[in-house]
Computed example of a mutant assay.
Amino acid sequence: MKAKVLVIGANGQLGSVLVKELQHRHGLDNVVASDINKSHNFHGAFEVLDATDKTQLLEVVESYGITQIYHLAAILSAKGEANPLTTWDLNMKMLFNVLEVARVQEMDKVFFPSSIAVFGEDAPWVNTPNKAYLNPATVYGMSKAAGEQWAQYYFLRYGLDVRSLRYPGVIGYQSLPGGGTTDYAVEIFHKAVLEEEFVCFLNEDTTLPMIFMDDAIRATMELMEAPKRDIKIRTAYNLAGSSFSPEDIVREIRKFYPDFMVKYEPDFRQDIAAKWPKSINDDEAALDWGWKPEYDLEIIVSTMIEKLKEQYVPQQ
C-alpha cells in the first residue's frame, strides 16, 4: 500500500525542499503540501491549512486518506521570543492536533522536528550527548523539549510511530530562513554573492552546530524509512553536520570573494546562541540507522556560492 503523505509547514525553509523529495520518493499524487498561506512553488496537491484548527486538519487527512504526517510548522527561536505565550500556544496546539488526529486515524508514522534549542546551559557544550539534561532558554526550545516527551508518550501509550530529529542550524540555498538564531549562516551567502556588506547578529567566534540542507533532508528520509525495530530513541535523535563560527564561514567565503566585508553587531540572538552547544554527538543516529553527514564547511561554502550565483547572476 502506497503511503499518502501530508506536509504541514510546506512553505518553510525545510518544508519547501522536503516536499519535493517526498514527491520523488512516493509519487506526485501521494504527497499533499500544506501551509497557512497559499504557495505556487509546488506541483501536485496543496491545501491552505491552519494546523491549530483540528477540525480542518482532520478534514484534509480524511479527504486524501493520509497515512503519514510531517509536521514542520512552528514559530522559531528568534521570532518566538517576541511573543512567548503565543509561541507556546501555537507550537503546542499544532502538535497536539497532529498527534491526536494521527492517533484516531491510526496512521503509520508521524515526523516531528526537534532542535538543538532543547539544550541549555546545563548540557555539555562540546560533543553534547543525546541524553544530556534539557533546560532550554527559549520558548521555542521549551516547546520542542515538551514535544519530544509527548512524541514518546504517544508511542508508549498508543503505539503511534512518532520519529524526531534534533536539527542543528540548517543551511540551504533553496529558500530564505524563517526566523531562527542560526539564520546568519544562510543570509551571509546571499550578501557575499551580491557583493554587499553583511551585518552579523552573532559574535565572530560563536561556534554552533550546523548542517547542509541536503544532509538534513537525507537524514530525515533515512530516519523515516528505517525499520521500526531500529528506532531505539522515541524522544529525538541528535543530528550533527559540521560545527563552525561566523569567522570560519567568512574565511572560506573570502577564498571566492576576497573583499567580502562583514560587521559584527550582536543582538539578543547572541544571548540565545551562547546557551546552545558548540558541537553535537550523534552516535546513536549512526548506530541505530546508519547516519553519516556528507558536507563539511568547505563543501557547504562552495556549493552555496555556486547555487546562489546561478540564482543571482544572469547566465551568459
Rank of each mutant, 00 (worst) to 15 (best):
V5G: 09
I8Y: 00
N11M: 06
G12F: 02
G12Q: 09
V19I: 13
K20S: 06
H26K: 04
D29H: 14
V32E: 01
D35C: 09
N41C: 12
H43S: 14
F46M: 03
T52D: 01
T52M: 07
L57H: 01
I66A: 12
I66Q: 13
I69E: 02
H71I: 11
L72H: 05
A74G: 08
I75N: 01
S77G: 03
P84E: 11
L85A: 10
W88R: 04
D89R: 10
N91P: 02
L95C: 07
N97S: 07
V98C: 02
V104M: 10
V104P: 02
Q105G: 06
M107K: 04
V110A: 04
P113M: 09
S115A: 11
S115Q: 15
D122N: 13
N127G: 05
T128F: 06
P129T: 11
K131S: 08
P136M: 06
P136C: 05
T138C: 03
Y140V: 01
Y140I: 01
S143M: 03
Q149Y: 13
W150I: 07
Q152F: 11
Y153W: 12
L156C: 03
Y158K: 12
V162C: 00
Y167P: 12
Y167N: 13
Y167V: 13
I171M: 09
Y173W: 10
Q174R: 08
G178N: 11
T181R: 00
T181M: 08
T181N: 07
T182V: 13
V186S: 00
V186W: 04
I188Y: 00
K191S: 15
V193G: 08
E196T: 01
E196A: 11
V199R: 10
V199A: 02
F201K: 09
E204H: 06
F212E: 11
I217F: 02
E222M: 11
L223W: 05
M224E: 13
A226S: 09
I233R: 04
Y237H: 02
N238V: 08
A240R: 01
A240N: 07
R254M: 08
K255E: 12
Y257F: 10
P258Q: 04
V262F: 03
K263I: 07
Y264M: 06
Y264Q: 02
E265L: 12
P266R: 09
F268V: 15
F268S: 13
I272Q: 00
A274L: 04
I280M: 03
D283C: 07
L287S: 14
W289Y: 12
W289S: 00
K292F: 15
K292A: 15
P293F: 07
E298H: 13
E298W: 12
V301T: 10
S302T: 02
M304F: 11
Q311T: 13
Q311M: 10
Y312K: 13
Q315H: 11
Q315T: 14
Q315P: 01
Q316G: 14
